[in-house]
């Protein structure tokens, strides 16, 4: 099968972005990249602990999807979730404080990296169980259908999760009931240390819904324009009452599965090639430069983003731990 970025889905031409869209995408992706780099740094300092799964390399996926989504469409994902939260509009400081286990975090420090939510931003987690976002996202879609409010629930999981039984139970019900849900398989090629060739009998994840009549498409997820365009088509399908849609978005994570993963299951050259040839942020940056945008303007965007992230880190470090009394709150409503 094709590698991410190697021009899969040649039938669809990559649509152009306007300059505003390019700048928006650059800013959003840079925010995630810088945020994750900082999170990695804070992990090394012991400010962040436990499991911490970085999204570096995959930024175009969630940013492109978000650009195609409508106000009110919901996101649900698994534990590599910081990018999804930032793309949803959740504040960097609240996310970083949660990573640090501080009271100003989105979950008051009680959820951590893998378990964050925002009703306001229609972000339904942040789930630590592989495969769980499939039925939960479909349940959110069930509520949309129940209310007939025209919203589409967008739920993300990895190609590793795509082998879970509950995903197929969900595909069946979502198709049977024509739920407005967009299933997105973020195929970053490694389920922790297991390459998809070693885990999947059939590696074309866009086909995984075919048995249930769910249309699927496999796209290059390193080009944010491509992600936006494919997502927009998929969302149209879901919103028009035709039921679920499955997008396999091929991507790549530069870092290990989590902070403690030395990533010995792949070569340094492979990672290097992806970074050099397919980096989603660099692609946008080069296009903007080619279109005549001044280098300084791009540097300014980076500086703005760095400032947000630095402030988030300062907040996360200076914020207090939760009150001990918080131990017993929020167990029951």
């Amino acid at each position: 099968m094709a590698n991410a970025g190697d021009g899969v889905d040649a039938a669809h031409t990559v649509p152009d972005f306007t300059r505003e869209e390019e700048l928006h995408a650059l800013r959003e992706m840079l925010l995630i990249r810088r945020f994750e780099e900082k999170a990695g740094q804070l992990y090394g300092m012991g400010v962040i602990a436990g499991f911490c799964h970085l999204y570096i390399g995959q930024e175009a996926v969630v940013v492109g999807v978000k650009m195609a989504a409508r106000e009110g469409d919901q996101f649900t994902t698994s534990y590599r979730d910081h990018g999804h939260m930032l793309a949803s509009g959740m504040e960097a400081r609240g996310v970083m404080a949660e990573l640090a286990g501080k009271r100003g975090g989105y979950s008051k420090g009680k959820g951590g990296s893998m378990h964050m939510f925002s009703h306001e931003k229609a972000f339904y987690g942040g789930h630590g169980i592989v495969g769980a976002p499939a039925p939960i996202g479909a349940g959110v879609a069930f509520a949309n259908a129940y209310r007939g409010d025209g919203k589409v629930s967008i739920t993300f999981f990895g190609e590793g999760a795509a082998n879970q039984g509950q995903v197929y139970e969900t595909f069946n019900m979502a198709a049977l009931w024509k739920l407005p849900v967009l299933f997105i398989v973020e195929n970053n090629r490694y389920a922790m240390g297991t390459s998809l060739a070693r885990a999947a009998a059939q590696g074309d994840f866009a086909m995984r819904g075919a048995a249930f009549g769910i249309p699927g498409r496999q796209i290059d997820g390193m080009d944010v324009r491509n992600v936006k365009a494919a997502t927009a088509e998929a969302l149209d399908w879901c919103r028009s009452g035709k039921g679920p849609y499955l997008l396999e978005i091929q991507t790549y994570r530069y870092r290990g599965h989590s902070m403690s993963d030395p990533a010995k299951y792949r070569s340094k050259e492979e990672v290097q090639r992806m970074r050099e040839e397919h980096d989603p942020i660099e692609q946008v940056r080069l296009r903007l430069l080619a279109a005549g945008v001044a280098e300084d303007e791009l540097k300014k965007i980076d500086a703005t983003v760095r400032k947000i992230v630095a402030e988030a880190a300062d907040f996360a470090m200076s914020d207090k731990e939760p009150e001990p009394s918080e131990l017993y709150t929020d167990v029951l409503a």
Binding site: P135, I136, A138, G139, F142, E169, T170, M173, L176
Partner: peptide, 26 residues
């Protein structure tokens, strides 16, 4: 049938769908 929903024999899946619907306010 919208409010009395027959499911396939897939407890893991429909329990999760139920929880998602509850998260979303049903």
């Amino acid at each position: 049938p919208m409010r009395v929903r027959d499911t396939p024999i897939t407890e893991y899946g429909f329990a999760g769908i139920g929880v998602g619907a509850a998260f979303a306010g049903l």
